[in-house]
Design a protein around this nucleic acid. Sequence first.
DNA 1: CCTATCATGTAATCCGTTACATGATTAT
DNA 2: ATAATCATGTAACGGATTACATGATAGG
Lengths: 169, 169
Amino acid sequence: MSSEIRLTPTSYIVLGLIEGGGEATPYDLKQAVAASLGDFWSLQHAQLYTEPERLAGAGYLKERREEGGRRRRHYAITAKGREALRDWLAEPTEELTELRDLALLKVFFGADAKAMAAAQLPAHERQLAAYEELRRDFGKVMPKGPGITLEAGIAAERIWIEFWSKQSG
Amino acid sequence: MSSEIRLTPTSYIVLGLIEGGGEATPYDLKQAVAASLGDFWSLQHAQLYTEPERLAGAGYLKERREEGGRRRRHYAITAKGREALRDWLAEPTEELTELRDLALLKVFFGADAKAMAAAQLPAHERQLAAYEELRRDFGKVMPKGPGITLEAGIAAERIWIEFWSKQSG
DNA sequence: CCTATCATGTAATCCGTTACATGATTAT
DNA sequence: ATAATCATGTAACGGATTACATGATAGG
């Protein structure tokens, strides 16, 4: 039983959200993702059904299924899950972000940088505005981790705006 | 025949490299990736065997197999491939980079930002140094697209260094 | 000559995406 | 009531990673 599985970033996202918020259904997770890390690390909703199942199968979560009505699945973290999450969090990583940016890739292969900038600039400006609004509205009450991440997102968006501005000039 | 396939970024990387460099073997592609876009968009070498095959099956490349010896596969781009690449390059994208950064994800869930900074800073500094060396050595002879991409990489690394420096203070 | 490394390739697995589908709830 | 939207789930497919494996070449 409890076939061993590899834990991916998706796994830790699920573990982290459940550890933080307590028992959750896939839909709860979907909401949580949308409300928190969704802009910088997106997930398909189907993953939030299959991943908890996988984790439960391997003993990192335990599943409770509603008796009547919708028979929704509720997942809670186990000791094993908590431990895995803790270990992962304690391990600093040297891994760097890769710049997997479609627009950049196109420019690399010769796409017109000015045209690309025209499409990218407004998109990045919208994203920056969204982040800044988040900070204005919730900055004070935001937990530390998400707050730091938000600052990173803002810094990154500023760079992209500066970069694409240069290309469009 | 020529079953229709979906073209992914990987597909366009292969098409782009072959269009730029002429006929190539998977190993040539591997070398080309390592020498050019490898730091900002990495690929498994196995993909450079399966992806050209996929593309050839759908008519975007044509395969020529050596008769004797190693029977290596050589791929050349077809008119269909050229057209697909051209169309893709001509289409600006609004899609934003996602910040899929493991270190940030860990911080989001509460990892110690200072410890993470200690691991990330040197890694980013190495990467920045590598980019700057590239620019110093090849900046003058680099094609436009890669040159622009390199500037983006440098700008991004600077931001990350600044960001993680703040966290370690 | 032997060994290490480079070069080349295949197979299996699995995660992630896409597509499909239906049950509840709210609004009109 | 009906339509629309929200909520919940499953199935199938495919691309990407991992692991395995062997052929050439160069260095000692």
